[in-house]
Amino acid sequence: MGEGQGGGIRWAGPGTVRVAAVRLSGAHRVWASYMGVPAAVDAAFLVTDGGALVGRGYYTSVEELAEVVDLSALTPY
């Protein structure tokens, strides 16, 4: 997760869907904890659509991510 100024890797999906691999620190840690992500998890996929969280927003595995996003439709950006 060292790419880009934000330190994460990002993908675009259909419409305004965006997926980013993020470190769970600072505000991301607070939001992820609020959404039920265990404290021991230090990174997750953040999913938004038009800036709004999709589902619980933070997904800790590709399997969880695939339940809310069509992975084949994602392209890096």
Rank of each mutant, 00 (worst) to 15 (best):
A43C: 02
V62D: 14
R56S: 01
A43Q: 11
A27N: 11
E3M: 13
M35T: 05
A39S: 11
A40Q: 07
G13T: 00
I9Q: 11
A52K: 07
S72E: 09
D42H: 10
T60L: 09
G8R: 06
G4R: 12
A39D: 06
A44W: 01
T75R: 15
G26V: 03
G50N: 03
G15I: 12
A21D: 10
V22E: 01
E67T: 12
A32S: 02
G15E: 05
L53W: 08
V41C: 11
G50T: 03
V54D: 00
A20H: 13
E64M: 05
T75S: 15
V62L: 11
V17E: 09
W11L: 04
D70A: 14
D42C: 04
M35G: 02
P14A: 15
E3N: 08
V69D: 01
E67K: 09
I9K: 13
P38V: 09
G13A: 07
V54I: 11
Y58W: 00
L24D: 12
F45A: 08
R10D: 14
V69N: 04
A12S: 08
M35F: 07
G6C: 10
L53V: 03
V69F: 00
T75C: 04
D42P: 02
A73W: 10
R56G: 04
G4F: 06
R23D: 14
Y77T: 11
R23E: 14
D42R: 15
Y59I: 13
S72Y: 04
Y34I: 12
I9A: 15
